[in-house]
């Protein structure tokens, strides 16, 4: 399968990419592992591709004040194996390892995945529970968007025309924080049918908890019903079961030939329980 014709330009800086992006029919190319398959199927036919994958200022992971800053063009593999991530945000290395396969992780990027906003992508759930901030740049300057405001619907984000995701900033969690990401995957595509991310703080009882799902609804979401059922409580088996039973209620549930609505909702409760048990 061959994509339709396009012009290809390698951008050397964020500024250059922003100015090239003014051409309305242009598309940004990161790792290409969502865009190129879509272009091969001709679901997407941009006339110009701007390759941003080698822009140095958009790559790498560093610690800045109380945050980890991940360049948007950092690959899943780099996140999975990075020592700062393993030490401070192990949920991200856990999630990265469950993305696709070795070859996909070697090429796919965090920023590319977030901008694409596939409802079954792994990253959004982890971004929601870690209070990630997505920094974007455009002709009008830079702005920071909270993960909770970024995913707006089915393949939809708060990105405006001409804006580029440049980095992801995540506050370092406090010492008494535990986290987990668990996933039931589509066996061929390895996308999440249900992915559940949990971050919990507390000693003995739960002071604060964040629970988010991906794959379940049109976009990733925080499940406040599950969170409220756990706040201030001790995470024993019974409490976890009761909380997990409330998962994915009151949201519209995706349905496809692999997992219908009822099954997907059931899986959400099962995987909420598994994730909560892992951090209990």
């Amino acid at each position: 399968m061959i994509p339709s014709e396009f012009d290809y330009i390698k951008a050397k800086s964020i500024d250059e990419a922003i100015s090239l992006l003014k051409d309305g029919d242009a598309k940004l190319l990161a790792g290409g592992h969502s865009l190129i398959p879509a272009m091969k199927l001709r679901l997407n036919r941009p006339t110009k591709l701007i390759d941003i994958s080698r822009i140095a200022e958009m790559k790498g992971i560093k610690q800045e004040d109380g945050e980890l800053v991940i360049g948007a063009m950092t690959t899943h593999y780099e996140i999975m194996t990075n020592d700062l991530i393993k030490k401070h945000l192990p949920i991200l290395s856990q999630a990265a390892e469950l993305i696709g396969d070795v070859q996909v992780r070697n090429k796919g990027t965090l920023g590319g995945s977030l901008a694409h906003a596939d409802p079954s992508a792994d990253w959004p759930a982890s971004m929601l529970v870690t209070d990630a901030v997505i920094v974007v740049a455009g002709a009008k300057g830079k702005r920071a968007i909270k993960a909770g405001d970024f995913f707006t619907g089915f393949f939809m984000t708060a990105l405006e025309e001409g804006e580029i995701v440049t980095q992801i900033r995540i506050p370092l969690p406090s010492a008494n924080t535990k986290s987990a990401y668990v996933k039931f995957m589509q066996p061929a595509s390895r996308f999440a049918i249900v992915g559940c991310a949990v971050v919990v703080t507390g000693n003995g009882s739960i002071d604060d908890i964040k629970v988010a799902f991906t794959g379940v609804s049109e976009s990733a979401f925080r499940d406040t019903a599950v969170e409220n059922a756990l706040k201030g409580k001790k995470a024993d088996t019974e409490t976890i079961k009761n909380a997990a039973d409330q998962a994915a209620e009151g949201v519209s549930i995706l349905s496809d030939h692999f997992a219908g609505e009822e099954y997907r909702k059931h899986l959400a409760k099962v995987y909420a329980k598994r994730a909560l048990t892992e951090v209990a």
Partner: peptide, 12 residues
């Protein structure tokens, strides 16, 4: 690094 060459442009 192992990469799937059907999902990458020669230009990349």
């Amino acid at each position: 690094m192992a990469v799937k060459s059907c999902t990458m442009l020669a230009a990349q």
